[in-house]
Design a protein around this nucleic acid. Structure first.
Lengths: 198, 198, 198, 198
DNA sequence: TATGAATGAGGTTTCATTCAT
DNA sequence: AATGAATGAAACCTCATTCAT
């Protein structure tokens, strides 16, 4: 009722994400999270009943924010005429999110969530893959995207993007010249694009 | 004359890699490593002075094996006439290694090694990037690979491959039909390939 | 003029006694006391400087109330003619107190007060034993109470009564039919009574 | 397989009982238990998964030992001819147990077990009351024990005995002259005994 | 005056490491 | 040489106490 520090839960989640991204969930100690958030250790437990709960909250927060960024980017500027245009929106969504939240993006791409992720977190995790796979399939039907398993193409494309984000840490994607980012976008598009058979 | 448990260090490194890949270095307990290797906890300390030492040994072993696989693939079948041909050898090297050692590959792609990696391990880590970047630059000079920072292109390409490997866990890359693997190779090549400007 | 929450200290002491009786002093948390008293945690500290202080206040309050109940019962109806009559007054004092304050009686009979009891609380604790021992000795001189160490007889008699009270928790002594209570009184009297040697 | 300290579990249970008796389950810290048992804190957790588990093990051990002592005393010297004789055996069983294990007896008589006792511990707890109540009922049928609810008479008698044991702490019942113990036995018997109506 | 969010010392529990066997 | 029971430092978590509101 009288919170002295507002949005302490957000502060804690942000601190947790930053540390989890850098040191792993298991490699991060609660006092470190508290210190980075600028609060006492005990305060964490007013908001999250356990380290595991904090981990799940952080994961869900990050994932949902990525979904939101994606949804926003996809809706931007009215209906996209083309598959290539839609890919650009995907790219813009990922780019924007990874620029604003480099830690969160890296954290989400960790593959060792199994040790602490609760079932409801797992459900969320598949959402993006579904959206992306759907795009791939429409692109294939339109003859714009190469043949092959949609999930595999998604993994290749997101993997490529992830590789770039990791390379750019810890400065963040912002330190990349716009030119480089455009080139990367073109490269990933060519990864997906079906070349006209000559 | 012959030690009863030959190559116990290898056994331990393999066990460690498998667990580190799945649960993180920090999330893996020494008794778990011992159990998976089928020895007592105390025995680990005959071969490695500490968990950290085991971690570094595992990292270096995995990295060196990848380098070896790469070197072997690159040397295969005499001098490669073309950039595309050389890319195929890279692909084959990565593919072979990731098929035979899926845990090791995933472990190497973790980004949270900073907590335990010793300086000499770090040096090793950059080797592959150097070899790959060199290839990229030669490809660019030959007009075969698109413009842009070589490190970034390497990150995109290896990232894409990593995405595919992660998708295929825990079955391993072997569960992927040859056809799919070929398609993926083509896709990643197109990621790098400079299109003729029409 | 009149404080809005009158006798908050009493409210707190009552809450504390109830919880201490059920869960031990060490097993009771300050927030639990506050909640049961219907106040905020911080408010406790306006009345008691520490948990230990609250514990001592609770103990002293309960003990003094028992002493008062005993004194009142002993004084009731003028001078008691006989030892048996005086025993009846003791019984009535204990009975009344334990009926009205079952938690307090149980709390007083805990034997683990040593961890928090201050010296002045300890002094109070011996008071009842002194009064009771004095009665025993007078009874022995009158040939009405069996031989033996007075403190031991007191321990036996109060122990028996305590056993009954504990059996009757949490309903309280009130749930016991008057008939049963009378039988118990007779039994405890026989515990003390010197039988005529035939 | 190679325990350096034999019967560490027994050592720990004994240490725990002594401390629980004196300071309550909640008031006893694990390091204190370890210290009293002469082992490291971590060792406790090789034998008991939690403090709660240790508490239950201690309770069950103490209760079962009391049951054994009672069973042994009741069986001693062939069939007991009389109710008074059987009462003597009960007395001897309790006396022997409380002499040998004063801490355990006091611990068992605590009334705050509810915070940590597991269901299977609770079951054990009722055993003695059943045996004693059965004896009371047989005594009543034989006209030797006074009328009234058997459970209440048991509570009175055991309560009286408990009062004596507590009085005698921490020296233990052994410090009591045999004469005093005999007098106490006579007194508690009179508590139960039905007086011939003159 | 009363509150309860915030704190950190201290409690419980884990786990890398040692060492008697 | 190999083991795993034992250890205690360090991790997670609780709760008595404070203090801004």
């Amino acid at each position: 009722m009288t919170p002295r520090k507002p949005d302490l839960d957000r502060l804690l989640i942000d601190a947790a994400i930053a540390l989890f991204a850098e040191r792993t969930f298991e490699g991060t100690q609660m006092p470190a999270v508290a210190q980075r958030a600028g609060v006492g250790v005990g305060s964490i437990y007013r908001y999250f009943p356990s380290k595991e709960a904090l981990g799940n909250a952080a994961f869900q927060h990050a994932k949902r924010a990525l979904l939101d960024a994606l949804a926003e980017a996809l809706a931007e500027g009215g209906p996209s005429g083309s598959i290539r245009g839609e890919f650009g929106r995907f790219w813009r969504g990922f780019t924007r999110y990874a620029s604003a939240n480099p830690d969160a993006f890296v954290f989400l791409e960790h593959q060792q969530h199994d040790t602490f992720l609760a079932p409801d977190s797992r459900v969320l995790a598949e959402e993006i893959d579904r959206i992306a796979a759907d795009f791939i399939e429409r692109g294939q039907q339109a003859g714009e995207i190469r043949d092959g398993d949609a999930a595999q193409l998604v993994a290749l494309a997101i993997g490529a993007f992830t590789g770039l984000v990791k390379l750019q840490r810890p400065g963040g994607l912002d330190t990349l010249p716009a030119e480089d980012l455009d080139r990367a976008e073109a490269a990933v598009w060519d990864l997906l694009h079906r070349k006209a058979t000559p």
